[in-house]
Simulated scan of single mutants.
Amino acid sequence: MPTEAQALELEKFLPYRLSVLAQLVSESLHDLYAGPFELSVTQWRVMAALGRFAPLTASDVGQRIVMDKVAVSRAVASLMKRGLVERATDLDDRRRASLRLTEKGRTVHAQIVPLALKYEADLYQALSAEERQALNSLCDRLFAHAKLLRSGP
């Protein structure tokens, strides 16, 4: 006998909730830096990755910020045109190029980081210190398990 299909309560479905929360947070943070610095979400993510981990290849940046190559490539090209990012050819492998923030890029990065950290602190005010710690621990576990599920058995 066939079973009745389960109903998907979208508003309670964890992947949906995480996606909507991420979008809302990303858009709210974007509102803080978009106007003054004329950066898209992808451009800021590229700069944030380079500000923390440079030098990186464009492929490395894409993996760090979990965005596709085309979006990263466009963002890098735009940031290079604006003088915020520079590319250097790897001396050991001429086919490989690493990216880093320019002096101008580091200045912009240094101006946005406090805005981002203040936004994070404001967001965290909805949680107690214990809840923040628990959330961070749970996020770490969900990230690790999601990566495991993505890679398959």
Rank of each mutant, 00 (worst) to 15 (best):
75 A>Q: 03
71 A>G: 14
102 T>H: 00
86 E>I: 08
46 V>S: 00
76 V>E: 01
152 G>Q: 09
27 E>Y: 05
45 R>F: 10
151 S>Y: 05
142 L>T: 14
53 F>N: 09
126 A>G: 14
45 R>K: 13
52 R>G: 10
58 A>P: 09
8 L>W: 09
118 K>P: 04
129 A>H: 12
133 Q>Y: 13
85 V>T: 05
34 A>G: 03
133 Q>N: 09
18 L>C: 04
37 F>N: 01
111 Q>C: 11
50 L>M: 02
36 P>W: 00
37 F>P: 00
136 N>S: 09
84 L>Y: 11
121 A>Q: 14
65 I>N: 00
65 I>R: 04
138 L>N: 10
92 D>C: 09
85 V>P: 09
11 E>M: 08
104 K>D: 07
90 D>K: 06
107 T>N: 09
80 M>C: 06
40 S>C: 05
115 L>C: 01
23 Q>M: 07
30 H>K: 14
118 K>R: 15
44 W>K: 02
37 F>I: 00
16 Y>S: 06
33 Y>T: 02
151 S>I: 03
141 R>G: 10
86 E>T: 03
66 V>K: 11
128 S>V: 04
59 S>V: 12
90 D>L: 04
22 A>P: 02
67 M>S: 07
62 G>C: 04
48 A>T: 04
17 R>L: 08
39 L>N: 01
137 S>C: 06
113 V>Y: 02
123 L>K: 07
130 E>T: 10
82 R>G: 12
113 V>R: 03
31 D>H: 08
88 A>C: 08
26 S>K: 15
142 L>Q: 13
116 A>F: 07
27 E>P: 02
21 L>H: 13
114 P>R: 03
44 W>C: 01
45 R>S: 05
44 W>D: 05
146 A>I: 04
103 E>W: 10
82 R>E: 13
94 R>V: 15
55 P>Q: 00
121 A>G: 13
120 E>D: 13
113 V>F: 03
59 S>H: 12
69 K>W: 08
19 S>N: 08
148 L>P: 15
35 G>V: 06
5 A>I: 07
46 V>C: 01
34 A>D: 05
17 R>W: 05
